[in-house]
């Protein structure tokens, strides 16, 4: 089991090379990929999230850690059974129409992935229709929306209204985030959660899916 702790440590240190090597060794030793994910990578990202919350880590460290996690995940993904059992839930995430900011959204996506969610990232400046389409296709439990401009955050409301129109809103929970967003705004547009940062985003996602299941 010592490799699993080392894998966590490699993620915390942001050492992509080491994370990759240790993951390969673990696979060779017949450690089930699910175990590597849930006992190695996820606890590592958990520590990263804690450090971010305590102000010990900032955006660069989190991204470097996430890069290390992704390096290991790239090896694991083909070996993981794609059935839902391996994931807590599916999250569709994007930056809304008119808005090209992606760093915050990427951090949130990687933290969610690190917390054991299946994350489908639609990218930046995603038109409302595309979001609705992706929801129909992937049936996520959670939709994460990011906006960094006061002029684009209103597009979040459009998306929620479009989902309601299509009768899709009740099947999922919407979490919104980004610099100009406030708790009040989130409530006013009918979002289910407001994430002031990525770690809180993960907490809320966890709480919301417990509410669902």
């Amino acid at each position: 089991m010592i490799e699993l702790n080392d894998i966590s440590q490699a993620v915390i240190e942001g050492n992509a090379k080491k994370a990759k090597e240790l993951t390969l060794i673990a696979i060779e030793k017949n450690v089930p990929p699910e175990t590597i994910l849930h006992k190695g990578l996820v606890p590592g990202m958990d520590v990263v999230g804690q450090k971010f919350k305590n102000n010990e880590y900032y955006v660069p460290e989190v991204l470097i850690a996430a890069r290390a996690m992704n390096a290991a995940l790239d090896i694991l993904r083909p070996k993981l059974a794609t059935d839902a059992a391996n994931y807590k839930a599916t999250v569709v995430i994007c930056t809304v129409k008119g808005d090209l900011h992606d760093i915050g959204k990427n951090i949130a996506a990687m933290m969610l992935e690190g917390a054991g969610f299946r994350v489908i990232d639609l990218g930046i400046a995603v038109p409302t229709e595309k979001v609705v389409e992706a929801v129909k296709l992937n049936k996520p439990a959670i939709l994460g929306l990011s906006a960094l401009l006061t002029t684009t955050m209103t597009n979040m409301k459009d998306i929620i209204e479009a989902l309601e129109k299509e009768g899709l809103k009740d099947s999922l929970k919407v979490i919104v985030g980004g610099a100009p967003i406030t708790e009040e705004f989130a409530k006013s547009i009918g979002a289910d959660g407001y994430a002031p940062d990525a770690t809180i985003g993960v907490q809320i996602a966890n709480a919301l899916i417990q509410g669902i299941s």
Partner: peptide, 14 residues
């Protein structure tokens, strides 16, 4: 905005 290289520099120079 939306320039990949900018995002990379932005993180590296933080």
């Amino acid at each position: 905005s939306g320039c990949k290289r900018f995002s990379e520099y932005f993180i590296n120079f933080m």
